[in-house]
Structure formats: structure tokens, C-alpha cells
Design a protein around this nucleic acid. Structure first.
Length: 296
DNA sequence: AAGGGAGCCTGGCGGC
DNA sequence: TGCCGCCAGGCTCCCT
């Protein structure tokens, strides 16, 4: 999926259309995605105005008037797109216009706005995503949000925070950084990229970056900085948009062109004076790309 | 009890 | 051209 930068890009793309609009109808075209939609969700949200869109880790939060929030997760292959216009004039109209990929249009937000109506459509071929409803006041206790670690943006991610999480950890750095309770929002791509930038091996035990007193070693500070940098740069670039994920406006993000190691097995390490072929290994079932010369 | 692996799904790609 | 196996951005659960 969409990792944090992609979800943030989606949020920014949807906000102008959704914020302030009224949801005239929430159309659920099947009973479930990864799991069933919250029972009664469509009825509960119909007619409500959308106050704002926010994001926590990889979750998109759609805040409605009256204290309800829809929590959307894009799984591996979820994407949103915006279409102008309201409900089709005849029931068959959608079916007529349907192309191959539209069979994976699972949710449609029908929106009434001051100028013109619009539809926001959630498409997800693999259906690893989900959509559920929560009371806004209870968001912090929602099981999906409650245990998340700090965002890798702003100042909340520090070497000290990582030191606490990494102390005595024997798990490899790759796994530790993918753990959403340590840092919220990192995925396979940005973990690989951050580790390459910081010169740390994905195989290294996380605990080796913490000293005996539980203080962060200098390399841990560098790692925190690299994580923040790579995420910030990716957000500026509009996400990576690999394969089936596109931005809400249909254009591709640019960050994928700046990957240093991700999906570059066999290519030369871009570090000045290195050039060693990037290696691909498998860690806990996922591909890891790294340079064995630069990352120790 | 932390860490590794399977499973959830569909589609695209390379190899034969 | 067709079929087959492998791979994919995430997350939870189960097993050791």
C-alpha cells in the first residue's frame, strides 16, 4: 500500500472535494473488503456533512458532523479517485461506463457540494483495505489506532523514542522499523530507503543501536533523521505510486524515481565511489534491498 | 514473549 | 498465444 506519504498525498488530493461537502449517500457495492463494513455505517453517515480529513499513520480519517469518523485503510492496492457529477440518471449508466478495473470500485461517496456534485470512488483489487466507523471522541481507543507509535514527521520521532523501543531488541532493524507500534506509517519501501541513507544494515539487531544505559548511540540519531527526511521528501514528491496505486488526480507520484535501493536489485549502489550491486534478501517474508558495502 | 511465517486477495510479469 | 509460478506498498493471527 500506500505507505504514509501516499496516504498523505491522497488526503491532500481529496480534501478540496470532500471537506465541507455533504454525503448524500454512501454506496457500498459489496458486504466487505478485508472484513465487513461496520454494520449500519451507510445509514449512519448518509446526509452528514464532512468537516475535515486527517491522517494517522497509514489511516485516512474522514470526520463527519455529529461526532462520527470513518477510518479508511488502503491495504496494498487501494486507491481513491474523484469523478464529477452526481448519481447516474439511470441505474444502467454506471454499468455501461464500466471498464475492466471498475469491477473493483467497491465504495462510492456521493457528495453534494455548493458548486457541483461529485463522487469519490474507492477502488481496491486485492481488498486488503477496509472502511469502518468510529465515534470521533473514541478514536484514540480504536484498536487500529490505539497502539500506533509516533509519526515520523515533525518532532515526535526522536533518537530517545527509538532507543526506548529498541533497547534489548534482537529483531533486525528491518523488522523493528516496520513495527507500527515503534514508528507509525513506515512500510517496506521507506524502511529500505531510510536504512540505506543511514548506512545501517537491515540485518543488524535493533538493540545494537542502544548503549548499556539505554541511551541512543549516534547512529540511532542518524537513523531517526534519515527516516524523517525520506518521509518528508516523499510527501513533497507526492508519494511513490507504484504499480496500481495512483494519486487521487490520476497522475503519478515522483518519488519512485528517487529510490536508491528499493526494487533496484543488481543495480549499482548510488553512493559516491561505491557502485556495488544492490542485493535483495527476504526478511520475515518481505523483500529487503540494500548495499552490503555501505550498510553495516 | 519476541520473532518468524502463513494467510487474506487479485493482477501483472517473466519464463517456458 | 497460453499457462504457471512468483511477486507485490499491509496487517493480524498462530506457532515456536
Amino acid at each position: 500500500m500506500p505507505e504514509l506519504p501516499e496516504v498523505e498525498t491522497v488526503r491532500r488530493g481529496l480534501a478540496p472535494t470532500m471537506e465541507g461537502a455533504r454525503l448524500t449517500r454512501l454506496e457500498l457495492r459489496r458486504e466487505n473488503l478485508r472484513f465487513p463494513f461496520t454494520p449500519g455505517m451507510a445509514d449512519a453517515l448518509a446526509g452528514r456533512q464532512i468537516e475535515s480529513l486527517s491522517r494517522r499513520a497509514k489511516y485516512l480519517l474522514i470526520h463527519f458532523e455529529g461526532g462520527l469518523t470513518a477510518i479508511a485503510h488502503l491495504g496494498m492496492s487501494g486507491s481513491f479517485r474523484i469523478e464529477a457529477g452526481g448519481e447516474p440518471a439511470t441505474p444502467g449508466e454506471f454499468h455501461h461506463a464500466r471498464s475492466k478495473d471498475e469491477k473493483h470500485d467497491h465504495v462510492v461517496f456521493h457528495l453534494a457540494r455548493a458548486n457541483e456534485p461529485a463522487r469519490v470512488i474507492y477502488n481496491d483489487p486485492r481488498r486488503f483495505g477496509f472502511l469502518l466507523l468510529e465515534e470521533t471522541a473514541r478514536l484514540a481507543d480504536n484498536p487500529y489506532l490505539a497502539s500506533l507509535g509516533p509519526e515520523p514527521t515533525g518532532n515526535s520521532l526522536s533518537a530517545e523514542v527509538l532507543a526506548t523501543a529498541f533497547a534489548d531488541k534482537k529483531a533486525p532493524l528491518k523488522a523493528a522499523l516496520l513495527d507500527q507500534t515503534v514508528i507509525a506509517g513506515l512500510g517496506n519501501i521507506y524502511v529500505c530507503e531510510a536504512l540505506h541513507r543511514s548506512g545501517l544494515s537491515p540485518k543488524r539487531a535493533a538493540g545494537t543501536l542502544v548503549d548499556r544505559k539505554g541511551r541512543p548511540k549516534p547512529q540511532l540519531g542518524l537513523l531517526a533523521e534519515c527516516v524523517r527526511d525520506v518521509i518528508a521528501e516523499a510527501i513533497v514528491a507526492g508519494g511513490s505510486s507504484l504499480r496500481d496505486h495512483i494519486q487521487t488526480d490520476g497522475s503519478l507520484g515522483y518519488f519512485q524515481h528517487t529510490f536508491r535501493v528499493y526494487d533496484r536489485e543488481g543495480e549499482a549502489c548510488p553512493n559516491p565511489g561505491c557502485g556495488r550491486p544492490v542485493e535483495r534478501i527476504v526478511q520475515s517474508g518481505r523483500s529487503t534491498f540494500f548495499c552490503a558495502a555501505c550498510q553495516k
